[in-house]
Nucleic acid binder design. Structure first.
Lengths: 130, 130
DNA sequence: TACTTGATTAGAGTTACTCTAAGTCAATAG
DNA sequence: CTATTGACTTAGAGTAACTCTAATCAAGTA
């Protein structure tokens, strides 16, 4: 059994976010202890893993909720769920491509800055002062 | 010379976002035509490239504004700018790592769904119905 | 001249948190 | 036995970065 804090620590998110996901019903059949505190089990942990993965693709809370609800409906929804995951895979692959481009740009900037700092570039001809 | 629409198309962002970046003064010395319409030149294009890269690292508009202002101050700020870019590089590398993990998770899910669809898994023992 | 197109602005709305205030409960300290 | 501490609860306000809407205006076309 895990507390809100445990989940926050485990997944590197804020405790606020943990409660928010619960309030949005992304964690099905969430339990409470006798003091009304949220308590999580290993299945909830798996839900958090899936949810955070889908969030990292940029999927909205609402869309994730729909996916979770599909999961709860059982095997009949496997095809629909597969389609959702395939779409998210495309999105994540696009993101990887974009991020790699951004990384290349940052490296280009760093090279430029190093050249300036080492005096290899004397005159700044670039209008951005770089 | 480019219009708001040109920039939006070129960088795959909304026209609203283009105007928003201008309003936040991320594009220094932005010009207007005689009808008060924003017009962009090739230097502005370079600013957009840099800005969008930094945004893709998750840098806030405010932080980007500070970076832009440093750029405008000239060579004395190269060290400070280099530090900023190095930080963003670390962040982007972390993001790449996280996204690759998410991708692996999606692939795992897809394998599972395919197994179910091809009848390789008969009994659903996993409590998530997967 | 009237209409359409495309731009402008201010400001309201949205998402996904993030933070704050006020309150509950159990355990420890005096 | 009370007092305080600390960890949790809630509702709701605040925030960032857009996103959208409505009203306005200028230029071009029928």
């Amino acid at each position: 059994m895990y507390t809100v804090k445990d989940i926050a620590t485990k997944f590197h998110i804020s405790e606020h976010a943990v409660r928010y996901y619960c309030d949005e019903k992304l964690i099905p059949s969430l339990e409470r202890d006798k003091n009304n505190r949220r308590i999580f089990n290993d299945i909830d942990l798996q839900w958090f893993q899936a949810i955070l993965c889908l969030r990292s693709c940029g999927m909205s809370i609402k869309a994730i909720k729909e996916y979770v609800d599909l999961c709860l409906l059982g095997d009949d929804t496997v095809k629909a769920r597969k389609k959702i995951i395939e779409e998210q895979k495309k999105i994540i692959e696009k993101k990887l491509k974009d991020l790699n481009q951004s990384l290349a740009f940052l490296n280009y900037k760093l090279d430029l800055y190093n050249d300036i700092l080492h005096g290899k570039i004397k005159d700044i001809t670039n209008p951005l002062n770089e």
